[in-house]
Amino acid sequence: MTNLFNDSPKKAGYRFPAEWVKHEATWLSWPHKEESWPGKIETIYTPYCQFIKIVAEGEKVRINVNDEETKAFAISELEKVGADLSQVEFYLHPTNDAWCRDHGPAFLLNEAKSQKAVVDWGYNAWGGKYPPFDLDDVIPTKIAGHFNHPLYLPEIVMEGGSVEFNGAGTILTTTACLLNKNRNPHLTKEEIEQYLLEFYGAEQVLWLGDGIVGDDTDGHIDDITRFVNEDTVLTVVESNPLDENYILLQENLAALKEMRLLNGKPLNIIKLPMPSPVIHEDTRLPASYANFYIANTSVIVPTFRDVNDEKALKIIQDVFPDRKVVGIDSTDIIWGLGSFHCLSQQEPAI
Protein backbone atom coordinates (compact mmCIF):
# COMPACT_ATOMS: atom_id res chain seq x y z
CA MET A 1 0.00 0.00 0.00
CA THR A 2 2.87 2.39 0.81
CA ASN A 3 4.33 2.06 -2.69
CA LEU A 4 0.88 2.60 -4.19
CA PHE A 5 0.44 5.86 -2.28
CA ASN A 6 3.96 7.10 -3.10
CA ASP A 7 2.79 7.37 -6.70
CA SER A 8 -0.73 8.58 -5.91
CA PRO A 9 -2.60 11.24 -7.91
CA LYS A 10 -2.52 13.53 -4.87
CA LYS A 11 1.26 13.37 -4.71
CA ALA A 12 1.37 14.13 -8.46
CA GLY A 13 -0.74 17.27 -7.96
CA TYR A 14 -4.12 15.96 -9.13
CA ARG A 15 -7.51 16.43 -7.50
CA PHE A 16 -11.14 15.68 -8.27
CA PRO A 17 -12.98 18.97 -8.93
CA ALA A 18 -16.48 19.80 -7.73
CA GLU A 19 -19.31 19.00 -10.11
CA TRP A 20 -20.17 22.69 -10.65
CA VAL A 21 -16.71 23.44 -12.09
CA LYS A 22 -16.81 23.92 -15.86
CA HIS A 23 -17.16 20.65 -17.80
CA GLU A 24 -15.64 19.68 -21.10
CA ALA A 25 -18.24 16.94 -21.40
CA THR A 26 -20.71 14.64 -19.67
CA TRP A 27 -20.21 10.88 -20.08
CA LEU A 28 -23.07 8.39 -20.37
CA SER A 29 -23.43 4.69 -21.15
CA TRP A 30 -26.45 4.10 -23.39
CA PRO A 31 -29.09 1.98 -21.57
CA HIS A 32 -29.70 -1.43 -23.13
CA LYS A 33 -30.04 -3.92 -20.26
CA GLU A 34 -33.70 -4.88 -20.04
CA GLU A 35 -33.22 -6.52 -16.63
CA SER A 36 -32.44 -3.07 -15.19
CA TRP A 37 -35.89 -1.82 -16.21
CA PRO A 38 -37.95 -5.04 -16.36
CA GLY A 39 -40.90 -4.55 -18.67
CA LYS A 40 -40.24 -0.81 -18.91
CA ILE A 41 -36.99 -0.09 -20.74
CA GLU A 42 -38.75 1.30 -23.83
CA THR A 43 -40.34 4.01 -21.64
CA ILE A 44 -37.05 5.48 -20.39
CA TYR A 45 -35.57 6.65 -23.69
CA THR A 46 -37.65 9.82 -23.98
CA PRO A 47 -36.72 11.26 -20.55
CA TYR A 48 -33.16 9.99 -20.98
CA CYS A 49 -32.86 11.83 -24.31
CA GLN A 50 -34.48 14.93 -22.84
CA PHE A 51 -31.70 14.87 -20.25
CA ILE A 52 -29.07 14.66 -23.02
CA LYS A 53 -30.74 17.50 -24.92
CA ILE A 54 -30.55 19.85 -21.92
CA VAL A 55 -26.94 18.92 -21.03
CA ALA A 56 -25.86 19.34 -24.67
CA GLU A 57 -26.96 22.99 -24.60
CA GLY A 58 -23.82 23.77 -22.60
CA GLU A 59 -21.26 21.01 -23.20
CA LYS A 60 -20.37 17.91 -25.17
CA VAL A 61 -22.17 14.66 -24.35
CA ARG A 62 -20.01 11.56 -24.81
CA ILE A 63 -21.88 8.27 -24.94
CA ASN A 64 -20.53 4.73 -24.65
CA VAL A 65 -22.45 2.44 -27.02
CA ASN A 66 -22.21 -1.30 -27.62
CA ASP A 67 -22.14 -1.27 -31.41
CA GLU A 68 -23.17 0.62 -34.55
CA GLU A 69 -26.75 -0.64 -34.25
CA THR A 70 -27.04 0.85 -30.74
CA LYS A 71 -25.53 4.10 -32.00
CA ALA A 72 -28.10 4.32 -34.80
CA PHE A 73 -30.92 3.68 -32.33
CA ALA A 74 -29.55 6.34 -29.98
CA ILE A 75 -29.37 8.89 -32.80
CA SER A 76 -32.97 8.18 -33.82
CA GLU A 77 -34.18 8.62 -30.22
CA LEU A 78 -32.19 11.84 -29.78
CA GLU A 79 -33.63 13.23 -33.02
CA LYS A 80 -37.15 12.67 -31.66
CA VAL A 81 -36.54 15.14 -28.82
CA GLY A 82 -34.63 17.62 -30.97
CA ALA A 83 -31.23 17.20 -29.32
CA ASP A 84 -28.26 19.00 -30.90
CA LEU A 85 -26.39 16.03 -32.38
CA SER A 86 -23.37 18.20 -33.18
CA GLN A 87 -22.76 18.21 -29.42
CA VAL A 88 -23.01 14.41 -29.07
CA GLU A 89 -20.11 11.98 -29.56
CA PHE A 90 -20.33 8.19 -29.57
CA TYR A 91 -17.64 5.74 -28.46
CA LEU A 92 -17.77 2.02 -29.25
CA HIS A 93 -17.15 0.93 -25.67
CA PRO A 94 -19.45 -2.02 -24.88
CA THR A 95 -21.05 -1.94 -21.43
CA ASN A 96 -23.10 -4.27 -19.26
CA ASP A 97 -25.34 -1.54 -17.89
CA ALA A 98 -26.09 2.19 -17.93
CA TRP A 99 -24.86 3.50 -14.57
CA CYS A 100 -21.92 5.61 -15.72
CA ARG A 101 -21.59 7.47 -12.39
CA ASP A 102 -20.41 4.23 -10.84
CA HIS A 103 -18.49 2.47 -13.61
CA GLY A 104 -17.30 5.52 -15.55
CA PRO A 105 -13.97 7.32 -15.24
CA ALA A 106 -13.11 9.59 -12.32
CA PHE A 107 -11.47 12.55 -14.06
CA LEU A 108 -8.82 14.41 -12.08
CA LEU A 109 -7.19 17.75 -12.85
CA ASN A 110 -3.67 19.03 -12.31
CA GLU A 111 -4.33 22.71 -12.84
CA ALA A 112 -0.66 23.72 -12.54
CA LYS A 113 0.22 21.48 -15.48
CA SER A 114 -3.15 21.86 -17.30
CA GLN A 115 -3.32 18.09 -17.35
CA LYS A 116 -6.09 15.56 -16.89
CA ALA A 117 -5.85 12.02 -15.47
CA VAL A 118 -8.27 9.15 -14.96
CA VAL A 119 -8.77 6.89 -11.95
CA ASP A 120 -10.13 3.44 -12.75
CA TRP A 121 -11.50 2.13 -9.48
CA GLY A 122 -12.53 -1.50 -9.28
CA TYR A 123 -16.23 -2.04 -10.02
CA ASN A 124 -18.29 -5.04 -8.89
CA ALA A 125 -21.91 -3.92 -9.51
CA TRP A 126 -22.61 -2.85 -5.92
CA GLY A 127 -21.21 -5.87 -4.16
CA GLY A 128 -21.71 -8.45 -6.91
CA LYS A 129 -25.49 -7.94 -7.06
CA TYR A 130 -25.86 -7.76 -10.85
CA PRO A 131 -23.35 -9.84 -12.81
CA PRO A 132 -21.84 -9.72 -15.33
CA PHE A 133 -19.99 -6.41 -14.91
CA ASP A 134 -16.68 -7.14 -16.67
CA LEU A 135 -17.35 -4.69 -19.53
CA ASP A 136 -18.33 -1.88 -17.16
CA ASP A 137 -15.25 -2.46 -15.03
CA VAL A 138 -12.84 -1.55 -17.86
CA ILE A 139 -14.65 1.54 -19.21
CA PRO A 140 -12.38 4.09 -17.47
CA THR A 141 -9.23 2.40 -18.79
CA LYS A 142 -10.64 2.41 -22.33
CA ILE A 143 -11.49 6.11 -22.10
CA ALA A 144 -8.09 7.00 -20.64
CA GLY A 145 -6.42 5.07 -23.47
CA HIS A 146 -8.49 6.75 -26.16
CA PHE A 147 -7.59 10.24 -24.93
CA ASN A 148 -4.06 9.32 -23.82
CA HIS A 149 -4.69 10.45 -20.22
CA PRO A 150 -2.47 9.20 -17.37
CA LEU A 151 -4.25 6.30 -15.66
CA TYR A 152 -4.32 5.33 -11.97
CA LEU A 153 -5.47 1.90 -10.79
CA PRO A 154 -6.14 1.78 -7.03
CA GLU A 155 -7.32 -1.87 -7.27
CA ILE A 156 -10.10 -1.47 -4.73
CA VAL A 157 -13.84 -1.15 -5.31
CA MET A 158 -15.29 2.36 -5.38
CA GLU A 159 -18.35 3.90 -7.04
CA GLY A 160 -18.81 7.51 -8.12
CA GLY A 161 -22.25 7.72 -6.54
CA SER A 162 -20.82 6.87 -3.13
CA VAL A 163 -18.72 10.03 -2.84
CA GLU A 164 -19.55 13.75 -2.91
CA PHE A 165 -17.04 16.61 -3.21
CA ASN A 166 -16.94 20.29 -2.26
CA GLY A 167 -13.89 20.97 -4.45
CA ALA A 168 -12.00 22.39 -1.45
CA GLY A 169 -10.57 19.22 0.07
CA THR A 170 -13.66 17.59 1.59
CA ILE A 171 -15.28 14.27 0.61
CA LEU A 172 -18.68 13.25 1.96
CA THR A 173 -19.68 9.57 1.98
CA THR A 174 -21.63 6.92 3.93
CA THR A 175 -20.57 4.09 6.20
CA ALA A 176 -23.49 1.99 4.88
CA CYS A 177 -21.86 1.78 1.46
CA LEU A 178 -18.10 2.13 1.86
CA LEU A 179 -17.83 -0.08 4.96
CA ASN A 180 -20.09 -2.78 3.51
CA LYS A 181 -18.27 -6.11 3.45
CA ASN A 182 -19.36 -6.71 -0.14
CA ARG A 183 -16.94 -4.00 -1.36
CA ASN A 184 -13.53 -4.08 0.31
CA PRO A 185 -13.71 -6.46 3.27
CA HIS A 186 -9.92 -6.47 3.67
CA LEU A 187 -9.75 -2.73 4.41
CA THR A 188 -10.44 -0.80 7.61
CA LYS A 189 -12.30 2.51 7.67
CA GLU A 190 -8.97 4.32 8.06
CA GLU A 191 -7.46 2.52 5.09
CA ILE A 192 -10.48 3.34 2.91
CA GLU A 193 -10.14 6.99 3.93
CA GLN A 194 -6.49 6.92 2.87
CA TYR A 195 -7.42 5.62 -0.58
CA LEU A 196 -10.07 8.34 -0.96
CA LEU A 197 -7.69 11.12 0.06
CA GLU A 198 -4.80 9.92 -2.12
CA PHE A 199 -6.75 9.02 -5.26
CA TYR A 200 -9.15 11.97 -5.20
CA GLY A 201 -6.60 14.52 -3.98
CA ALA A 202 -8.54 15.52 -0.87
CA GLU A 203 -7.79 16.41 2.78
CA GLN A 204 -10.71 15.09 4.83
CA VAL A 205 -13.51 12.52 4.69
CA LEU A 206 -16.83 13.16 6.45
CA TRP A 207 -19.09 10.17 7.10
CA LEU A 208 -22.87 9.92 7.13
CA GLY A 209 -24.72 6.71 8.04
CA ASP A 210 -27.47 5.06 6.00
CA GLY A 211 -28.91 5.76 2.57
CA ILE A 212 -32.59 5.82 1.69
CA VAL A 213 -34.91 2.82 1.57
CA GLY A 214 -34.95 1.05 -1.79
CA ASP A 215 -31.39 2.03 -2.70
CA ASP A 216 -29.75 -1.17 -3.94
CA THR A 217 -26.29 0.45 -3.82
CA ASP A 218 -26.23 0.07 -0.01
CA GLY A 219 -26.57 3.79 0.60
CA HIS A 220 -25.07 6.09 -2.02
CA ILE A 221 -24.54 9.67 -0.90
CA ASP A 222 -25.98 11.09 -4.14
CA ASP A 223 -29.49 10.11 -3.07
CA ILE A 224 -29.30 11.96 0.26
CA THR A 225 -26.80 14.83 0.55
CA ARG A 226 -25.11 16.97 -2.12
CA PHE A 227 -22.63 19.82 -2.00
CA VAL A 228 -23.80 22.86 -3.97
CA ASN A 229 -20.81 25.06 -3.09
CA GLU A 230 -17.74 24.74 -0.87
CA ASP A 231 -19.64 25.03 2.40
CA THR A 232 -23.30 24.33 1.56
CA VAL A 233 -25.16 21.04 1.25
CA LEU A 234 -28.67 20.18 0.14
CA THR A 235 -29.93 17.23 2.18
CA VAL A 236 -33.23 15.39 1.89
CA VAL A 237 -35.55 15.11 4.89
CA GLU A 238 -38.79 13.19 5.25
CA SER A 239 -41.73 15.10 6.76
CA ASN A 240 -43.86 12.06 7.60
CA PRO A 241 -42.70 10.57 10.94
CA LEU A 242 -44.31 7.24 9.99
CA ASP A 243 -42.28 6.91 6.78
CA GLU A 244 -39.43 4.39 6.93
CA ASN A 245 -36.97 7.04 5.72
CA TYR A 246 -37.86 9.48 8.50
CA ILE A 247 -35.51 8.37 11.28
CA LEU A 248 -32.48 7.60 9.13
CA LEU A 249 -32.71 10.99 7.39
CA GLN A 250 -33.08 12.72 10.78
CA GLU A 251 -29.94 10.90 11.93
CA ASN A 252 -28.08 12.07 8.84
CA LEU A 253 -29.29 15.64 9.40
CA ALA A 254 -28.04 15.55 13.00
CA ALA A 255 -24.65 14.21 11.82
CA LEU A 256 -24.34 16.99 9.22
CA LYS A 257 -24.92 19.61 11.94
CA GLU A 258 -21.95 18.23 13.90
CA MET A 259 -19.54 18.23 10.96
CA ARG A 260 -16.81 20.82 10.48
CA LEU A 261 -14.99 21.72 7.27
CA LEU A 262 -11.21 22.09 7.00
CA ASN A 263 -11.49 25.76 7.98
CA GLY A 264 -13.39 24.80 11.14
CA LYS A 265 -16.72 26.13 9.88
CA PRO A 266 -19.97 24.15 10.16
CA LEU A 267 -21.85 23.19 7.03
CA ASN A 268 -24.55 25.48 5.71
CA ILE A 269 -27.44 22.98 5.51
CA ILE A 270 -30.47 23.45 3.25
CA LYS A 271 -33.27 20.91 3.49
CA LEU A 272 -34.87 19.30 0.45
CA PRO A 273 -38.21 17.49 0.72
CA MET A 274 -38.68 13.87 -0.28
CA PRO A 275 -41.34 12.87 -2.79
CA SER A 276 -44.16 10.63 -1.65
CA PRO A 277 -43.14 6.94 -1.80
CA VAL A 278 -42.81 5.75 -5.40
CA ILE A 279 -43.94 2.13 -5.55
CA HIS A 280 -43.78 -0.18 -8.56
CA GLU A 281 -44.77 -3.85 -8.42
CA ASP A 282 -44.79 -3.70 -4.59
CA THR A 283 -41.21 -2.38 -4.57
CA ARG A 284 -40.33 0.95 -2.98
CA LEU A 285 -37.99 2.78 -5.33
CA PRO A 286 -35.17 5.14 -4.25
CA ALA A 287 -36.88 8.30 -5.51
CA SER A 288 -35.01 11.40 -4.35
CA TYR A 289 -34.65 14.97 -5.56
CA ALA A 290 -31.01 14.85 -4.41
CA ASN A 291 -30.11 12.81 -7.50
CA PHE A 292 -29.84 15.97 -9.60
CA TYR A 293 -27.01 16.58 -12.08
CA ILE A 294 -25.09 19.87 -12.29
CA ALA A 295 -24.28 20.62 -15.94
CA ASN A 296 -22.56 23.73 -17.33
CA THR A 297 -25.69 25.75 -17.99
CA SER A 298 -28.37 23.77 -16.16
CA VAL A 299 -29.22 21.57 -13.21
CA ILE A 300 -31.39 18.61 -14.16
CA VAL A 301 -33.62 17.32 -11.38
CA PRO A 302 -35.63 14.08 -11.32
CA THR A 303 -39.33 14.67 -10.70
CA PHE A 304 -41.97 12.11 -9.77
CA ARG A 305 -45.43 13.55 -10.57
CA ASP A 306 -45.52 14.54 -6.91
CA VAL A 307 -46.84 17.46 -4.89
CA ASN A 308 -43.27 18.25 -3.77
CA ASP A 309 -41.79 18.45 -7.29
CA GLU A 310 -42.21 22.22 -7.63
CA LYS A 311 -41.04 22.87 -4.09
CA ALA A 312 -37.84 20.90 -4.68
CA LEU A 313 -37.19 22.64 -8.02
CA LYS A 314 -37.53 26.06 -6.38
CA ILE A 315 -35.12 25.19 -3.56
CA ILE A 316 -32.55 23.94 -6.06
CA GLN A 317 -33.05 26.96 -8.34
CA ASP A 318 -32.38 29.27 -5.38
CA VAL A 319 -28.93 27.75 -4.80
CA PHE A 320 -28.02 27.78 -8.52
CA PRO A 321 -29.02 31.28 -9.66
CA ASP A 322 -26.58 31.12 -12.60
CA ARG A 323 -28.06 27.92 -14.05
CA LYS A 324 -31.43 26.90 -15.45
CA VAL A 325 -33.04 24.27 -13.22
CA VAL A 326 -35.01 21.74 -15.26
CA GLY A 327 -37.23 19.01 -13.88
CA ILE A 328 -37.56 15.84 -15.98
CA ASP A 329 -40.09 13.14 -15.13
CA SER A 330 -38.09 10.26 -13.66
CA THR A 331 -41.03 8.01 -12.71
CA ASP A 332 -40.05 5.37 -15.27
CA ILE A 333 -36.28 5.82 -14.99
CA ILE A 334 -36.35 5.28 -11.20
CA TRP A 335 -37.67 1.74 -11.80
CA GLY A 336 -34.00 1.07 -12.65
CA LEU A 337 -33.19 2.18 -9.06
CA GLY A 338 -31.33 5.33 -10.05
CA SER A 339 -31.78 8.62 -11.86
CA PHE A 340 -29.88 11.35 -13.71
CA HIS A 341 -26.88 11.67 -11.39
CA CYS A 342 -26.45 7.89 -11.29
CA LEU A 343 -26.50 7.76 -15.09
CA SER A 344 -23.91 10.49 -15.75
CA GLN A 345 -20.28 11.35 -15.02
CA GLN A 346 -18.75 14.77 -15.61
CA GLU A 347 -15.44 15.42 -17.37
CA PRO A 348 -13.98 18.73 -16.21
CA ALA A 349 -12.54 21.25 -18.64
CA ILE A 350 -8.86 22.20 -18.40
Results as ranks from 00 to 15, higher is better:
residue 215 D to S: 03
residue 222 D to T: 10
residue 221 I to P: 06
residue 177 C to Y: 09
residue 171 I to R: 03
residue 232 T to M: 01
residue 192 I to F: 14
residue 175 T to K: 14
residue 223 D to E: 14
residue 192 I to C: 07
residue 216 D to W: 03
residue 213 V to P: 06
residue 184 N to M: 09
residue 193 E to M: 10
residue 180 N to E: 06
residue 208 L to F: 05
residue 183 R to M: 10
residue 211 G to E: 08
residue 178 L to V: 06
residue 227 F to R: 01
residue 182 N to Y: 09
residue 228 V to R: 02
residue 172 L to K: 03
residue 170 T to P: 02
residue 192 I to H: 11
residue 215 D to N: 00
residue 209 G to Q: 14
residue 233 V to I: 12
residue 230 E to L: 02
residue 174 T to W: 00
residue 190 E to C: 08
residue 172 L to F: 03
residue 190 E to R: 14
residue 213 V to I: 15
residue 182 N to T: 14
residue 189 K to H: 13
residue 170 T to G: 03
residue 185 P to V: 04
residue 205 V to L: 13
residue 226 R to E: 01
residue 195 Y to A: 08
residue 208 L to K: 01
residue 215 D to T: 04
residue 208 L to Q: 06
residue 176 A to R: 08
residue 174 T to E: 03
residue 192 I to N: 04
residue 216 D to V: 08
residue 187 L to P: 12
residue 216 D to H: 09
residue 206 L to Q: 13
residue 180 N to W: 02
residue 232 T to Q: 07
residue 183 R to D: 06
residue 176 A to E: 15
residue 231 D to E: 14
residue 208 L to Y: 01
residue 177 C to I: 09
residue 227 F to Y: 14
residue 205 V to N: 11
residue 178 L to K: 05
residue 217 T to D: 02
residue 204 Q to V: 11
residue 218 D to Y: 04
residue 216 D to A: 02
residue 217 T to I: 07
residue 221 I to W: 00
residue 207 W to E: 12
residue 231 D to P: 03
residue 172 L to N: 00
residue 217 T to Q: 01
residue 220 H to Q: 05
residue 182 N to G: 11
residue 175 T to Q: 08
residue 177 C to P: 11
residue 177 C to R: 10
residue 184 N to A: 02
residue 202 A to D: 10
residue 219 G to N: 03
residue 206 L to F: 11
residue 211 G to L: 01
residue 199 F to D: 00
residue 228 V to H: 02
residue 206 L to N: 13
residue 233 V to D: 10
residue 229 N to T: 01
residue 198 E to L: 05
residue 221 I to F: 05
residue 204 Q to G: 10
residue 190 E to Q: 15
residue 223 D to G: 08
residue 183 R to N: 08
residue 219 G to L: 01
residue 230 E to Q: 14
residue 219 G to E: 08
residue 196 L to H: 07
residue 223 D to H: 09
residue 219 G to D: 06
residue 177 C to M: 11
residue 203 E to Y: 13
residue 191 E to N: 11
residue 225 T to E: 01
residue 233 V to K: 03
residue 227 F to Q: 04
residue 219 G to Y: 00
residue 210 D to I: 00
